[in-house]
């Protein structure tokens, strides 16, 4: 067997060279042994891919789950941050991960869907298995203090009289606020100028500084300053706890439903048992009083949806948003 050793050495050298050539600069995705028993899952820590910077909203929400992860899954999550391109980079990575259940991640409805429509992410609705939604954050239409538009009726009326003259700030181009505004335009038959700003804080300062006529903002981001602007309507199926006296658009006759949903996903192709275990585990954490209190303190509004419910919602939303964007963005 003397010869064998030498050939093993040279073979392994060749293998390494090959691997360098094949994997290049990308990630080394060695094919995984898929036959692991799903019964004992999870046997080791689960990687949690956060497509945003540490310290951001998605990170904080997931950290609150992580406080209880040890008792549910035997280990804490291992956090992997993959920020870039507003989450599109990380979401692409989640979709490409191994389907053994040890790599899951968090994305935001509808941003990852819109990234798929705009072409900035190479994934779509069917690239993921859906575990659950833990929280949601609908949009509110706001106008600066002293504005002439304090109700949905006044706003729609003004927009009808001056087509494309009203400026509506949204927290990002082709983001959730953008599509919510498009939905309102479609349902109310109006046209406004959409001003894409850089995130919720940028929108808040544009409203407080009266640089735009109105804004379609996420409740959570602007709620602490709610005394300094008018809130016209909320894009939810029911009135929201944070602003109970603000009517929904649905009440006003425009069925606009849009929110940022914090959802947990896995790459498509997880074993059903594993997916179920993940959903049950996260639901158990979600039900804990301590978790609910944490969320409340940080001004996140909890809103549970099962994986199946999430999937149904995103499929419908995707079709609607795609049509709207194609219609209004030429």
């Amino acid at each position: 067997m003397r010869l064998g050793r030498k050939s093993i050495l040279s073979a392994s050298f060749l293998l390494i060279v090959l691997m360098i050539l094949v994997t290049g600069c990308g990630q080394s995705n060695t094919p995984a042994p898929e036959k692991k028993s799903e019964v004992n899952y999870p046997e080791r820590p689960i990687n949690m891919i956060v497509p945003y910077d540490p310290g951001g909203g998605s990170d904080m929400l997931t950290r609150m789950l992580d406080k209880h992860a040890k008792e549910q899954f035997g280990n804490n999550f291992t956090f992997v941050y993959k920020p870039g391109a507003g989450g599109a980079i990380g979401a692409s990575d989640i979709a490409k991960e191994k389907t053994d259940g040890y790599s899951i991640g968090t994305v935001n409805i509808p941003n990852y869907l819109l990234q798929s429509i705009s072409g900035s992410g190479d994934f779509d609705v069917d690239s993921f298995d859906y575990i659950c939604q833990t929280a949601s954050d609908p949009q509110i239409l706001i106008t600066p203090k002293g504005s002439n538009y304090t109700t949905v009726e006044e706003f729609v009326q003004a927009a009808k009289e001056n087509p494309k003259k009203l400026t509506v700030g949204v927290p990002g181009a082709l983001g959730d606020g953008h599509v919510a505004t498009l939905m309102l335009m479609e349902k109310a038959g109006i046209e406004v100028s959409i001003v894409p700003l850089k995130g919720g804080s940028d929108l808040l300062s544009a409203i407080l500084g009266k640089h735009v006529d109105a804004g379609m903002a996420n409740i959570g981001v602007v709620i602490s300053e709610k005394d300094n602007f008018n809130i016209l309507g909320v894009t939810f199926d029911r009135r929201h706890d944070f602003v109970p006296d603000v009517p929904t658009f649905k009440e006003k006759g425009y069925d606009v439903q849009s929110f940022v949903g914090r959802i947990y996903v896995a790459p498509k192709g997880l074993a059903p048992e594993v997916l179920q275990k993940l959903e049950t585990g996260l639901k158990n954490i979600w039900d804990k009083k301590e978790y609910q209190d944490d969320m409340k303190n940080a001004k996140f509004s909890t809103d549970w949806k099962t994986g199946a419910e999430v999937k149904e919602f995103v499929t419908n939303y995707y079709t609607e948003a795609k049509e709207l964007i194609e219609k209004y963005n030429k």
Binding site: I16, M19, I20, T23, G24, C25, G26, Q27, S28
Partner: peptide
């Protein structure tokens, strides 16, 4: 160097 980091 940097091309072989992720492989090796």
């Amino acid at each position: 160097y940097i091309s072989s980091i992720s492989a090796i």
